[in-house]
Design a protein around this nucleic acid. Structure first.
Lengths: 321, 321
DNA sequence: GCTTTGACGTCATACGTATCACGTACGACG
DNA sequence: CGTCGTACGTGATACGTATGACGTCAAAGC
């Protein structure tokens, strides 16, 4: 239960000064410390199991080389991909990434930036948590480009237009929309684009959740002018639509076509596999991290928009004649 | 672009000393500072937008009141629930939680404990990353109780026995096992329990991934002495089994019963809904955090085992006669 | 023989906070 | 009048690190 060794302890054991230890372990001893001495220092550090005190280092340097990724939930595979992209870029530049789940509603007692000493924040706009980060450099994911913060997002409108065109080409004239009951930019755009097509005949709102989506889909499908295609704001919502269709004795895609959004794992777990929009989540993470690191360098990176690609699978077909 | 204000700046503005600012903002000014002065300090802090420097505080106090949750992946809803439970308990005690994805294979350049200044680690054993945390207090999730570190886990053996009994009661005599190709305690236990039943006739290994599971399931189902029930190590693997069954023209559960493990979201997204083992992930997180905080208090909490409950849904039925 | 140069290190200091040990009034009390 | 107690603060310091400004000593150069 002895105390954790400090650089001074290492210095004592190696028979040098603390400064020298710091120099050697930082790799800045080139030409200033005899190779032999350097080895002795490293050996002593190893023997004592020395690990630098990160708090002290941060205090001294005024930065932590760590950024925080704020996500609305850990339960979505989508953010796993975002993290992967972000972490790869960060790692190349010697930065670390930690993750903190956070939404406005379920805000913990301490805001994410009060939890840890960090240099910057990458925040998802889902859940709306864009404010409250103080003056920490910030890049927002999937956010309204009109927002002052630097944002990196998907071409959601383009993706939704591709869905609409795909369904129109198949011959669908009555579209139903299962919209996420979340008021953020990305979902507002989806609704607007669909409305503009002129083919929309019904819309229901629900939580991003299979059971809730099933209920909403029942309301949408169990009506006289039943839509021949259901456009869903999220793949999970599409899973609920499948269940509702099955419950009503409707076959997907023969009786009703279904489309999703995101191309997460369930898209291919469903039967038939889901026609959906693939969002390059990993690229999003990478681009956002690149932008954030540029901000940390004092630059002002431009907003970025990434393409959203239509993936046609088995859940869409021409409507029954 | 002015510098971030320090407690000394606040002191200057409020016309008091830095010590007083610290006292007031820490809420320890009771009877030592005039209420009026306290108000002035708080007002000055607010005006300047003062936020304490966490690095300096950590250095001074020798602790950060932050713990790190290490998970193998962010793509699993399971760990979302673990986090929720852990964060709730931590928050009650004034601790914050950050998350870091990590596996042995995809180890980033810097180990999680080198990323941030933290007081303790909650690590998932999946991926095996139990070593390499130095002397930081550690609690391991879902790990072999034989391991020296404090562990909090599920009664995996009990859960698997419940599955075996359920299938035996239905009349199944030939079980196939779709095992996760991951060598950790939790999966070893599942395999052992199934082997002991004596009813196991075939086993295939695959990654925890729908596509891989589908291939493995095809190998399992496309053979003369086809198992009448397929026991899967994970709900995602079960999703692959569904696909394989469908591909072979087999109906679930009429021609083949399928069981999962975890009761994550896909379990109810599948059709028919999946009979599976529910693991109380949120309780796991809460219990583990409780244990970790006890360790931080210098205690030595005992290992904990949480019950695993069989949830019978539509994917299991008596075998065809 | 005296200065210069280079190689090899060390000294001292600052980062921002929390806290222990001291003041300094001022009224009360004997 | 002297002493004590209380209310209200402040001064000084330490936490562990990184780094710019200084030695020191021997060999080389003039």
């Amino acid at each position: 239960m002895s105390k954790r060794p400090t650089s001074r302890d290492v210095a004592r054991v190696a028979g040098v000064s603390q400064s020298t230890v710091s120099l050697v372990l930082a790799g800045k001893s080139e030409g200033r410390v005899k190779p032999e001495t350097g080895r002795a220092v490293r050996e002593a550090a190893r023997r004592l199991g020395y690990r630098p005190n990160l708090a002290a280092r941060s205090l001294r340097l005024g930065r932590t080389r760590t950024v925080l990724l704020v996500v609305p939930t850990l339960t979505s595979p989508f953010f796993g991909a975002v993290y992967t992209g972000a972490a790869r870029v960060a790692s190349e530049r010697g930065f670390g990434v930690v993750v903190h789940p956070w939404t406005d509603e379920a805000a913990p007692a301490r805001s994410p930036v009060d939890i840890e000493a960090i240099d910057g924040v990458l925040a998802s706009s889902l859940g709306g948590g864009v404010a409250g980060f103080g003056d920490v450099p910030l890049v927002v994911l999937d956010n309204d480009p009109a927002d002052p913060a630097t944002s990196v997002n998907f071409d959601v409108a383009g993706g939704m237009r591709a869905v609409a065109r795909h369904l129109a080409d198949l011959g669908h004239r009555r579209l139903g929309h299962l919209a996420a009951a979340v008021d953020t930019w990305t979902f507002r755009v989806r609704a607007e684009v669909l409305t503009e097509t002129g083919a929309l005949t019904a819309r229901e709102h629900c939580a991003i959740d299979v059971a809730a989506a099933r209920e909403a889909a029942l309301a949408l499908l169990d009506r006289p002018d039943r839509p021949t295609a259901v456009v869903c704001d999220d793949d999970l919502i599409a899973a609920g639509a499948y269940k509702a269709a099955r419950h009503l004795g409707l076959d997907v895609p023969r009786d009703v076509s279904v489309t999703g959004f995101d191309d997460i794992l369930v898209a291919t777990a469903l039967e038939p596999e889901l026609t959906t929009i693939r969002l390059p989540a990993e690229r999003l993470g990478a681009q956002a991290m690149t932008a954030l690191l540029e901000r940390l360098d004092g630059q002002a990176p431009p907003d970025v928009s990434l393409p959203a690609e239509l993936i046609v699978r088995g859940s869409t077909a021409p409507p029954a004649p």
